[in-house]
């Protein structure tokens, strides 16, 4: 019992020490700090390491989630924030922030059904919505069977896996479902977290991936990088043009190219349900948020230098980590935007 009583204050003490050192680093002005989206963390940390190796400053990024990133950059505690859900122009103007995309990826429905190979199961958007809403309950439901003639579908119930935390991934996923399914839009709607009518919740992409791998006859949604790393079977989706596409670098960039970035003020654009013939329907973007008139100009300049590096030399590295580089026209547009808005 004594052991239990001693432990908590000790933990508090350790935590206090930890945050002290963090503050000292911030206070000394060594490097740039950022916080936000967990999705962008792997590529951002790879860029930061390379950037530093080539003589740049330290980039300290904390992947605390999109919502946390927005809150922190608004409060001015970090030099930049990263979010998977773009802010509206009004919101940006009110909080005096600039916003631009940095990298593109896809969100993939992953399945765990014995005998189903990756991409073999075909699903449409409305059907995906019905599954996640619990209206289609069984794998051999006529609606699924009709789309997949010749595929052996088990007569078992579908176990739905969703996120337990609020997430930009969920925002993009439910934004897509709301666009293609009026029933979903009316009942669950879109958001970083929604009122899931069924299923189990995993924390983070890794939590959902782990649940789908462990629960037989389950379906979930994760970022593409997790599909590649975990070798998970996925479903192919019907896009707006009516074609069934599998998630891949090509189908993501096809979606990025067919999106009309030029018309989107402050890049406030969600790329789901893109119109291209081969476009993958649930393509997502991570956005960087920075103050238009930064309190610390030197740090802001250094951050911009880092992002310019990421958008030019860093894009090859993004590809290696299963993200999708931004189209050249978009990079040019971002460059102009940065020059015009961030002082």
């Amino acid at each position: 019992m004594t052991r239990m009583l001693i432990a908590p204050p000790f933990a508090v003490l350790l935590a206090a020490c930890g945050s002290n050192t963090g503050n000292q680093q911030g206070g000394q002005g060594a490097g740039v700090t950022g916080a936000g989206s967990t999705f962008v963390y792997p590529v951002l940390s790879a860029w930061a390491a390379d950037y530093k190796a080539q003589g740049g400053q330290n980039i300290n990024y904390q992947s605390i989630g999109s919502g946390g990133g927005i809150a922190q950059v608004k409060a001015g505690t970090v030099d930049f924030g990263a979010t998977d859900q773009p802010l509206s122009s009004d919101d940006l103007a009110e909080s005096k922030l600039a916003q631009f995309p940095i990298v593109i990826g896809g969100i993939v429905p992953v399945i765990n059904v014995a005998g189903l190979q990756p991409g073999k199961l075909k699903l449409t958007g409305p059907l995906l919505a019905d599954i996640f809403a619990g209206r289609v309950k069984s794998w051999n439901d006529p609606a699924i069977a009709k789309l997949n003639p010749g595929v052996a579908l088990p007569a078992t119930s579908i176990a739905v896996v969703h996120r337990s935390d609020a997430s930009g991934t969920t925002f993009n996923f439910t934004h897509y479902l709301s666009q293609v399914s009026p029933a979903w839009k009316g009942a669950e709607g879109e958001g970083k977290s929604v009122n899931w009518p069924t299923g189990v919740g995993g924390k983070g992409n890794e939590g959902v991936a782990a649940y789908v791998k462990q629960i037989p006859n389950s379906i979930g949604y994760v970022e593409y990088a997790y599909v590649v790393q975990n070798h998970m079977p996925f479903a192919s989706l019907q896009n707006a043009a009516g074609n069934f596409v599998v998630p891949s670098a090509q189908s993501f960039s096809s979606a990025a190219e067919s999106a009309d970035w030029g018309a989107a003020k402050d890049f406030n654009l969600v790329m789901t349900n893109a119109s291209g013939a081969n476009a993958y329907p649930i393509t997502a973007t991570t956005f960087i948020l920075m103050p238009k008139t930064p309190a610390n100009k030197a740090k802001s300049d250094e951050a911009l230098k880092f992002f310019r590096y990421a958008l030019s030399k860093g894009q090859g590295q993004a590809q290696k980590l299963d993200y999708v580089p931004l189209p050249a026209a978009l990079v040019k547009q971002i460059d102009d935007y940065i020059g015009a808005t961030i002082k």
């Binding site: 977290s193 299923g199 189990v200």
Partner: peptide
């Protein structure tokens, strides 16, 4: 299972107070 569903069945996912806080606090905006 971290699901906010009320179910009589012991085999169904549910949520606990501590788990809900751990899951949702970082993004409670």
């Amino acid at each position: 299972g971290n699901a906010h569903d009320l179910s009589a069945s012991l085999l169904m996912p549910s949520n606990s107070i501590a788990a809900a806080i751990a899951n949702e606090f970082t993004e409670a905006d």
